[in-house]
Design a protein around this nucleic acid. Structure first.
Lengths: 216, 216
DNA sequence: CCCCAAACTGAACGATCCTTCATATTCTCA
DNA sequence: TGAGAATATGAAGGATCGTTCAGTTTGGGG
């Protein structure tokens, strides 16, 4: 949310009446549907409008151009994902690292899997716009959440927490993405997921400082 | 190479004279340049031809359409990457697993980094075509090379080698990709890379079978 | 040296696609 | 209830892009 909205990509106007809010939601949903069924290259203002059951002009009342719509869609999506990860992190405050890592991987995987086609479609559509600010804001949020979670671990401390967090998140996100894009069969995907947890935990054991039993 | 070429994507004709071979190479190079400087959305037959210093018609003598050019370009690129990985794997036959893992990660990172802009551009351009067969062929090659390498390790055996290899490769490829796309500063990228090696090795230690000192 | 095949040219066509705007419809609240 | 604001319409304009093909140039073998 605290993302500074790039001027040229910000929405044109906010809905003031109920029907407008409905229309806006419908536009987003239609965009996803077109993306999933027709692919990012066939994502067309006309097609989105048609799927929404609305005329093209209506779209242009809310977004100055196609990219802005796209940008807003990604913003929405990343917001959901970030929130989920933050929730998972909060729920593990003070727990043991192993549980934290498992929760982190699982939460991310779950939110990506719940609407797998949407995830895949959005992964593919990243090209269409310059969404680095979005990604960066997302990364910052998740990084912060993970950092405070790990810092609160009951059974571990780290010499270089920032690097550990960066490595952990980069590998988790990257691995999940690869699994999605390679379209692995469910059994293999599950196996990789389980082993990813093993891997991250093994990593944590390697980089955590030797235990000092009492700190207070 | 032994990829069965999808009929609609295969090149139109092979060069028979020297100048034609030169032209073909120039087209590929120009495609990369346009991709890097203008982005995948502005990759246009006209632009490529212009950058090549050739007319549009010439392109269409070698490729039936834009997608075929794109496909061939990715094929070339993935071939190079796969070859490098295979070389690295061969060089580590019979070594210790730790060395193998480090060599694998390093080799992959290196080949991706040598022409970073090209890598980034191609990562982004994946959308433009249905290159699943290419990716799959690449995955098979690298998977096979890694499998035989790990099987020859002097100090480790694995209960479920296929899953170990799949996990290893998925996470390495995914992590490297994430590092690239997030455009991390060099120091952070290097740090993640080092920790990725740590992580993979920690993982290997976790999943390898307890040593039986003598097998013969 | 000459001729045919290989290689190259580029204007032109058709197909989309994004965006606008003058107009029509619907809602809200005074 | 009526008027002004909010919302919706969709044909039309302008731009870009992929692809073709009739014709020209170039190269190499006989």
């Amino acid at each position: 949310m605290p993302t500074n909205p790039p001027p040229h990509l910000s929405p044109r106007k906010r809905p003031r009446q109920a029907r407008a809010a409905v229309t806006l939601d419908a536009i987003f949903e239609a965009t996803i549907q077109v993306l999933v069924s027709d692919g990012p290259r066939r994502l067309t203002t006309t097609r989105v409008a048609e799927r929404t059951g609305v005329s093209v002009g209506t779209m242009y009342q809310y977004f100055p151009h196609k990219q802005a719509l796209f940008y807003a869609l990604n913003e929405r999506y990343l917001d959901i994902v970030a929130e989920r990860v933050e929730d998972a992190c909060r729920a593990q405050q003070g727990a043991e690292v192993a549980a934290m890592v498992e929760a982190l991987v699982t939460a991310y995987w779950q939110v990506k899997t719940e609407r797998a086609e949407v995830t895949r479609a959005l992964y593919k559509s990243v090209v269409e716009l310059d969404n680095e600010p979005l990604i960066e804001a997302f990364a910052r949020r998740v990084d912060a959440a993970t950092s405070t979670m790990l810092a609160s671990a009951s059974d571990a401390d780290f010499a270089d927490l920032p690097t550990v967090v960066l490595t952990l998140l980069t590998s988790i996100f990257g691995t999940v993405r690869s699994v999605f894009e390679r379209n692995l069969p469910i059994e293999e995907a599950d196996a990789v997921l389980r082993h990813l947890v093993l891997m991250c935990n093994a990593y944590i054991r390697t980089v955590k400082l030797p235990a000092e039993c009492v700190t207070a």
